[in-house]
Amino acid sequence: MLYGARNSDVAREYGSDVEALLLNYVTYGVAEGRATSGFDALIYGASNIDLAQGYGSNAHALTLHYLDHGADEGRATSGFNALVYGATYVDLAKGYGSDAHALLLHYLDHGADEGRVTKGFDSVAYLLTYADLGAANLGANWALTHWLDHGADEGRIGDAAFGREQSDQVLGLADGVQSGTLTTSDRDWYALKTRANQTLTLELNGALSDGTLQVFDVNGHLLRSTTAAPGAAQAALSFTATGQEAYVVVSGPTAGDFVLQVHAGDWWL
């Protein structure tokens, strides 16, 4: 059955008919170099909340569902990230750490029924919150693992300093302008595509009084930082990029709207 589940066109044609699947593989699949493995029934279930709620971690039932229904319905067979799921909840991070299989089973057998979401933790925000993570050159992916295996148990605040309300985290090359609103003591971050040794200038304007502007490399090292003069709502800094991407952080002690702009020389990115 895994042969059928691994090949969606075969699944749509033959469903869970084992004899038909075997005949197809012998007659056509071998010569066509068809894959016979690679379908993960548990990931399939976790990627579809109704299946997680209906079948839990019953891999056999999930495989049959895909063969007889899921392929025809165009169901996703991937997309669930167990580590992100675990990191989104402090109790799961403390209870399971970075054990991806245990977190996958938890979602299938409990989390889906409990109404838990599968995404939400911001590993970049966690990285940029703690200087020691940047000093260790963790980057966002390893910062996620650090939170699961150490940070939650150490009582760290995770991504809470940035909140989870920010919807757009790209400072695009097309117009080089981002606008946003900070709540009191909030922080926002933006990914900025750069070139190594490229000098860029960032400008912060708006109604955000005493705003702070920071630039980090992708490993979390602080490159430059500046704060607007007391009572002022404008700040600017220039920095030299160290790689192909940087993180720009806007923060402030008070709430307010802001506009963030970036340019290199006379050209707005």
Rank of each mutant, 00 (worst) to 15 (best):
H263E: 00
G180R: 04
Q234N: 13
R12K: 15
H221G: 02
E154A: 15
H221C: 00
E154F: 10
A31Q: 13
D159H: 13
M1F: 02
V259W: 02
Q244N: 07
D210E: 05
R224I: 10
G220N: 08
T145P: 01
G56H: 05
T145V: 15
A143T: 10
N7T: 07
A131R: 13
A196Y: 06
Q234V: 12
A255C: 10
V170D: 00
R224L: 08
D40V: 04
Q198R: 08
D186R: 07
H69G: 00
L22V: 14
V30D: 07
A125Y: 02
A82E: 11
G158E: 12
R6Y: 03
A59K: 12
S78I: 00
L208T: 03
G4P: 09
L208R: 10
L208N: 13
A59E: 15
G256F: 04
H69F: 10
A191R: 01
A233T: 15
G139T: 12
A196G: 11
F39S: 05
A87N: 05
L133M: 11
T77A: 06
A174P: 01
E154Y: 13
G120I: 14
G176I: 00
K119C: 03
F162I: 06
H146C: 09
A125F: 11
H65T: 13
L269A: 05
L21N: 04
G220T: 15
G95V: 10
Q198A: 14
G79W: 13
G243A: 15
A229W: 09
G220Q: 12
T118F: 06
E245H: 02
L182M: 05
A236M: 09
T118G: 11
V249G: 00
E73I: 03
A5R: 00
D91V: 13
D149W: 04
A207V: 06
W189A: 01
L105I: 15
F39L: 05
Y55E: 04
H110Y: 14
D113V: 11
V215Q: 11
F162H: 03
G211L: 12
V84M: 10
S179W: 02
D122Y: 09
Q244P: 00
V250T: 08
Y126I: 11
L64M: 04
G243K: 04
R6T: 14
P253S: 12
R224W: 06
H263M: 01
T194A: 00
Q53Y: 04
Y247E: 06
L192Q: 05
V249I: 06
Y55H: 14
A135G: 04
D217A: 01
L103Q: 07
V218T: 15
S238W: 04
Y126M: 12
Y247G: 11
D257H: 14
D132P: 03
V18D: 06
Y28S: 13
D68P: 01
A35K: 10
N197W: 09
N58P: 09
A174W: 03
A152E: 05
S123G: 01
D168E: 12
D72L: 14
Q166K: 04
D99P: 03
A255N: 08
A152F: 07
T145D: 13
E203S: 14
W142C: 01
A131P: 06
D153C: 02
L223K: 05
V215I: 14
Y107C: 07
F216Q: 09
S251W: 02
N81P: 08
T27F: 01
A46H: 05
A152K: 07
R75N: 13
D122A: 09
E73Y: 10
Y55M: 11
A235F: 08
Y126W: 09
G139N: 09
L223I: 14
A143D: 11
A264I: 07
D159Y: 09
E165R: 15
